[in-house]
Design a protein around this nucleic acid. Sequence first.
DNA 1: AATGAATGAGAATTCATTCAT
DNA 2: CATGAATGAATTCTCATTCAT
Lengths: 211, 211, 211, 211
Amino acid sequence: MVEIPTKKHERRKEARPSELISSALALFVERGFAATKMDDIAEKAGVSKGTLYLYFDSKEILFKAVIKQGVLPLLDEGEKLLHHFDGDARSLLQEFMLRWWKLMGETSLGGIPKLMISEAGNFPQVAAYYYENVIVRGRNLIGRVLKMGMDSGEFRVMDIESTIDVIMAPVLMLIVWKYSLTPCGTNNPKQYMNTYFDLVINGLMKKEVSK
Amino acid sequence: MVEIPTKKHERRKEARPSELISSALALFVERGFAATKMDDIAEKAGVSKGTLYLYFDSKEILFKAVIKQGVLPLLDEGEKLLHHFDGDARSLLQEFMLRWWKLMGETSLGGIPKLMISEAGNFPQVAAYYYENVIVRGRNLIGRVLKMGMDSGEFRVMDIESTIDVIMAPVLMLIVWKYSLTPCGTNNPKQYMNTYFDLVINGLMKKEVSK
Amino acid sequence: MVEIPTKKHERRKEARPSELISSALALFVERGFAATKMDDIAEKAGVSKGTLYLYFDSKEILFKAVIKQGVLPLLDEGEKLLHHFDGDARSLLQEFMLRWWKLMGETSLGGIPKLMISEAGNFPQVAAYYYENVIVRGRNLIGRVLKMGMDSGEFRVMDIESTIDVIMAPVLMLIVWKYSLTPCGTNNPKQYMNTYFDLVINGLMKKEVSK
Amino acid sequence: MVEIPTKKHERRKEARPSELISSALALFVERGFAATKMDDIAEKAGVSKGTLYLYFDSKEILFKAVIKQGVLPLLDEGEKLLHHFDGDARSLLQEFMLRWWKLMGETSLGGIPKLMISEAGNFPQVAAYYYENVIVRGRNLIGRVLKMGMDSGEFRVMDIESTIDVIMAPVLMLIVWKYSLTPCGTNNPKQYMNTYFDLVINGLMKKEVSK
DNA sequence: AATGAATGAGAATTCATTCAT
DNA sequence: CATGAATGAATTCTCATTCAT
């Protein structure tokens, strides 16, 4: 993107696959797997259709690569955070959600969840992979924070499993929204996140005596 | 489905369209528009491919019919509820979400939102229609309940627009989930809804002195 | 067309087939065989598609019926004329062409030659039938008139077979024209026929000493 | 046709379009537009169905290309002749018709008029294009020759517009005939053209004193 | 490695024909 | 007799994939 392609063939070859994956991701997210043509992916990446097949043997393999490459950063970031943090549970949770949202919203990775939602029915194995590597691990992270907060007395004691889901839902929905119906209505993500923190964290906290 | 097709030429001009739409809805939701074959829709409906074209001139027109037919009940129900209710805002909101969830979860209508999320990119006009007729009106309903609660002092005073979105997100997510990644993880919807009510309503309420 | 269909089922049944044939002829001429739908023929005739099959077992059979019914009048008329005429060859030829043109131009029968030209490649047997029953007999008629005129010294002595063709060509062309490119350019058929008579008959006549 | 398809992927982007058009022309003329299958055109051209669509987006576009490519030579030739000629009107007219007939009869271009006659009803715009670019211009050419002859006293003074039509009709008919009913009857084109020249030119000439 | 012309299986769509009413 | 809903074979068109250059 930033590089200057002085001579066509002199470009870094190692970068190719991930460029292709980026193009594919963008189109898969926008249109879905079946409605995306290999031609279009190639064109968007600025290569010929044949080149696509040089790196990915089939459309389905390309799809899997898109998911696999997109999935890992989604988690690593979170796990990193959890290790290097030592504030209270509330701050951690908030920080966590904020980072996740930014990661999703600023990179094109946010399309991954939307894509998985759309294509889970057509690619059960990929969905299972996604489930194991993103959802389970992600829920795990949140679960640990919740537990921490409940143990410390910060949070009310609630059913953890369902609380994880309910807490994540609004952030997930915001991201899914971004890649689907955004062109229709404009919502204000920052305000949304503020309200989310206010509402959900508030609901989570032990009710204090508001003198 | 269960019927034995003894007679080839069975006439039911009246019932056909909605039968066909039902079959189409189910498959569109499961696989997406592009990945669903007209053959499969016909087969699921127990008719021949040609019959499908007797009622819908093209796959795209069928898609639009699916959305249009699915959209109306989604709203009518809600607006009905709002009129015939006179409890406090909290109960109304809770009742509202409960009904919506049941409507979505029990009928196949729940697939509509998931379908729209997946296909919005490919059918901008349909997405716009959906936005106008479902989202705007739906947000409106919730907005009125929130306002009622805030005016009466039941709810905290918060930014209404974003609160609407945050409040709806978990229910919407549950429904989308049902039609996408459910086969992977099993969540317990009832527990989820309970936690949702507990968490969100709690967050919404004025903090009381829990002496 | 003119009849008043007081009660639907009270209409003369005998007339049906030829009504259907008329509709079919009109559409076959306008669009060609393959591009004409049975639906359209039925609609034009004001009956249901099923009724068409009550009288004609298939589209091809209908096509043959159209040709057969259209072909006979084309000849009978001409042979009648030749028998009841006793003027000079020039007048007879002129009268002949005039009648033929009128017959073709005023009824929808004129479409038959255009239709045969278009479809001969797809229906060789029908073309052969047409050739035997229209072309051969028609050329025969003209040939006899020419011979008559040459024998009597009215016409120059020329090769009869090719003269037949050349003489008929302009009239045939006028008719074919009517059913194909007419919408584009407007020609004046009467003027055309006058010029035709003037030019061709003149060319046929023995050059006289124009003292 | 004669070539042995040793190599499947034979590249000739340059030559392809006109090869395909030739095949299409032949089949369209023989069978008509609707009765010609894309498969057959491809097979005749020795390529796959897909290749056809590589060059022509639809059957209709292919049809238009066939007409457009076929139309131009029909005129250019004639206009060229008119410029480089300086004999008398009679010779020019005769030369003109002879060349036209040869052009039509020897190349497959002769099919174009027959095709237009057959399909004018289904493609009014194409018919209009043909009218403007072939018929109008063609009549113009003949008209100029006629005027020349009448002005110089060679030809009788007649109505020019209708004379153009009458004069062209036999040649046009011969060509149409070639692509439709020829298999039925065999006529002798050379004899036909001789008789045509003899009859029509004779009819056109001022009657001379044949002492 | 890269290209893009060529392929052909597969999906949407049409329409002649059938048949229960 | 007449109807028109239903059928499915046939056709147009698409697009993932291949392969000669």
